[in-house]
Design a protein around this nucleic acid. Structure first.
Lengths: 170, 170
DNA sequence: GTAAATTAGTTGGGTACAAAACCAATTTAG
DNA sequence: CTAAATTGGTTTTGTACCCAACTAATTTAC
């Protein structure tokens, strides 16, 4: 029981209603209508659920997108990976170190430009990616069920639009 | 023009693309269609934009929801606040310390239960909340413009549904 | 050809967060 | 009433992240 307290507030009820107990009675004010706030809550909840889903696998969910992107784009550089991933390149440094140490990826210096690494998956990496993909599929099916098939595409489109446009212009 | 690469994923002849290949050519594979991934990207982008919007104000955006919730629920306890906020109570400890030190909130021990604090805004806190509210309004208007007025309610509803249901059953 | 600018990646400093262990006040069992 | 359980909050530990400063390799300017 971590923050599923979020979802079921009635569970811990018993008699704890007294003062400022549950969020049932909390007034969210304008927050209740603000997209940014709910975007954060939904992202956090979804992330937590994925962690749960992937608990048996010994690889944190943050690694998943990284592994997938390397698998799909063999030879990609760390910088390109960081951009695609929406993270700072410095964030990837320790992650890639770890993935390499554990034998999931290879980092080879390019002959033609000895600054860059060329990232590729090892066989173990491909195997791990498969497991993670299965996990992610279950997780995403879950989300689909919640969102509903008919709204899914629209929802996704809006998320992408936000990502692309929110910082883009003035 | 940061990650509009997100939108197109299919043109993936990239592996051969030499090093400097930007994200334009990156193949996102199944990632391109997974809600969780885009939820993360959108949340990150939206958060970044809010930071930008609130740069002139000397209070980090994470404090905003906290301040709002206290303002709307005077006397709320730290635990209730944490739940409403979707954060662990331990996360709030330093935040509330900081807000108190800066004179935006009061933390008073309850007479009837000297374990709990009763949180309230000071005048300075109310003033700050007003400023932040204006910022958040601008930010949310931005999001509205991107989402489109007619899809906004639906979108919000889905976000809330995800938050409420993703961890709940299964 | 060397000096300056640019680029790929790492390091260091700092923030935000969660989980678990913990303390103190309060409630419940006996 | 005391002992145990529970509850509100804090501390400690560890992870993920960003940004700014840095190093090394490479490119551009002159």
């Amino acid at each position: 029981m971590k923050q599923d307290a979020l979802s079921r507030s009635a569970e811990a009820d018993s008699a704890s209603q007294r003062k400022g107990a549950a969020n049932e009675n909390v007034d969210f004010g304008p927050l209740a209508d603000w997209v940014g706030f709910h975007l954060r809550l939904a992202q956090t909840a979804s992330f937590q659920a994925f962690v749960e889903e992937a608990r048996e696998i010994d690889l944190s969910p943050g690694r998943f997108a990284t592994l997938m992107l390397i698998g799909r784009n063999p030879g990609i550089s760390q910088t390109a990976l960081a951009v695609a991933n929406g993270r700072d390149k410095s964030t990837l440094t320790p992650i890639l170190e770890d993935l390499e140490r554990r034998g999931f990826i290879l980092r080879e210096k390019l002959k033609t430009d000895r600054r860059s690494y060329q990232l590729t998956l090892t066989d173990a990496g491909r195997k791990m990616l498969e497991q993670l993909t299965a996990c992610a599929k279950r997780h995403d099916d879950n989300l689909d069920r919640i969102i509903g098939a008919k709204d899914r595409a629209k929802f996704l489109k809006i998320l992408q639009k936000i990502t692309a446009e929110i910082g883009g212009e003035a």
